[in-house]
Simulated assay, not measured.
Amino acid sequence: MGGKGEYGVDLDALDQVIGKLNHVLQNMDEPVGHAKNGTYLPRGALGQEFAEEKLLHDHHDAMKQDIEALVAKVRGLVDSFGKKSSKVRDAYQDAEADNKIDMS
């Protein structure tokens, strides 16, 4: 290896990366659920009849939405990277098979 036009790809390493990304993706269901449901704050939970109550609650709601969006974005990035890694792995495997055929 190392000559002009030659390449080497460790398909097993790519398989491991894809497997780990899929595992992370499966484990993202819990943070998604926590961000959506585990941070609920009902009106009045911070007290009532004081000037800052509505402001605190509104800021909490805004932060909750930001956290949900960030968790969803991370999940999307992991999913996208996993799919792209899988396509790259398949392309390298196809190229390897083509090279073996050409050498025959």
Rank of each mutant, 00 (worst) to 15 (best):
S85L: 10
A97H: 09
L77R: 11
V74E: 02
T39V: 04
I101R: 15
A69S: 14
E68P: 00
I67M: 11
N22F: 01
A51Q: 10
G33C: 02
I67F: 09
V9M: 12
G19F: 05
Q65V: 06
A69E: 13
V74I: 15
E49R: 07
A45P: 01
H34T: 07
V9N: 01
G8M: 09
M28S: 06
M63Y: 08
S80N: 11
D29F: 03
E49H: 09
G33T: 11
S80W: 10
L46P: 00
Q48K: 14
E30A: 13
Y40G: 01
A35Q: 04
G47N: 06
L70M: 13
V17A: 11
E30V: 10
M28W: 04
G76L: 06
A45K: 04
A91I: 02
D79K: 14
G82F: 05
I18Q: 06
A72F: 03
D58M: 05
E96K: 13
L55E: 14
G2S: 15
K87L: 12
L25F: 06
E52G: 01
L14P: 00
E6S: 15
I101D: 13
E6N: 12
D58F: 01
I18N: 02
K100S: 13
L55W: 10
N99R: 13
V71I: 15
G44D: 09
T39K: 01
I101N: 08
A69D: 15
V9G: 02
V71F: 05
S80V: 04
A13K: 12
I101G: 02
F81C: 09
F50V: 03
K36M: 06
K20D: 13
R43F: 05
I101F: 07
A95S: 12
S86Y: 07
A13W: 06
D79W: 03
E49W: 07
N22G: 15
D61T: 10
L56C: 06
I18L: 03
H59S: 08
D98F: 09
L21Q: 05
H57W: 13
V74S: 00
G82L: 04
G33R: 12
A62P: 01
D66K: 14
D29A: 15
M103S: 15
S86W: 03
G33A: 09
V71E: 02
Y40D: 08
G82S: 15
F50K: 08
V17S: 02
V78W: 03
Y7R: 08
E52M: 08
L11E: 08
N99P: 01
L56W: 12
A72P: 00
G3F: 08
S85W: 01
